[in-house]
């Protein structure tokens, strides 16, 4: 079973993403702040990370950069989720190394589709 790490501080958003991913048969790890998430990513080396932008401690962009700078986590795909929809925000996310940026409110189907795509499970 593949591990997916969700780094998200809004409890309900975390719960929704967790529910839908578990439903699709993934094992879910969670972290509720940036630093905790980064530590967990380095320690557990998940197959994919779902990352919020606005986070306490380290923000999503910083977590993203750190993961892409650290050899063991560099290849892990990162899907960023945020209520911010300005082009500048999207650009910052991709410049920080995100593999995909999805704006909230997200469509659950789309999220699952992107997860599968970045895990190379597309049918």
């Amino acid at each position: 079973m593949k591990n997916i790490l969700i780094i998200e501080d809004v409890e309900d958003h975390l719960e929704i993403v967790k529910l839908i991913l578990e439903q699709h048969g993934y094992n879910v790890l969670v972290a509720t702040n940036g630093q905790e998430g980064l530590d967990s990513a380095k320690k557990n080396l998940p197959s994919l990370v779902i990352l919020d932008v606005v986070l306490p401690e380290l923000n999503g962009y910083e977590v993203c950069k750190e993961m892409k700078n650290f050899p063991a986590t560099r290849a892990i795909p990162i899907i960023m989720l945020s209520v911010r929809s300005n082009p500048e925000d999207v650009e910052t996310a991709y410049k920080s190394g995100a593999n995909k940026y999805i704006t909230k409110p997200f469509n659950l189907e789309e999220l699952v589709k992107e997860v599968k795509k970045h895990l190379g499970e597309e049918s």
């Binding site: 929704i16 209520v83 997200f106 659950l108």
Partner: peptide
């Protein structure tokens, strides 16, 4: 306006997300 819309979208994300989960009869 931008901050306000972010604040409005956060709870809306939760509402719409939970509805989808119930609609898909996952629980």
């Amino acid at each position: 306006l931008r901050n306000m819309t972010h604040e409005l979208k956060t709870p809306l994300t939760a509402i719409l997300g939970y509805i989808s989960i119930l609609q898909e009869k996952q629980l």
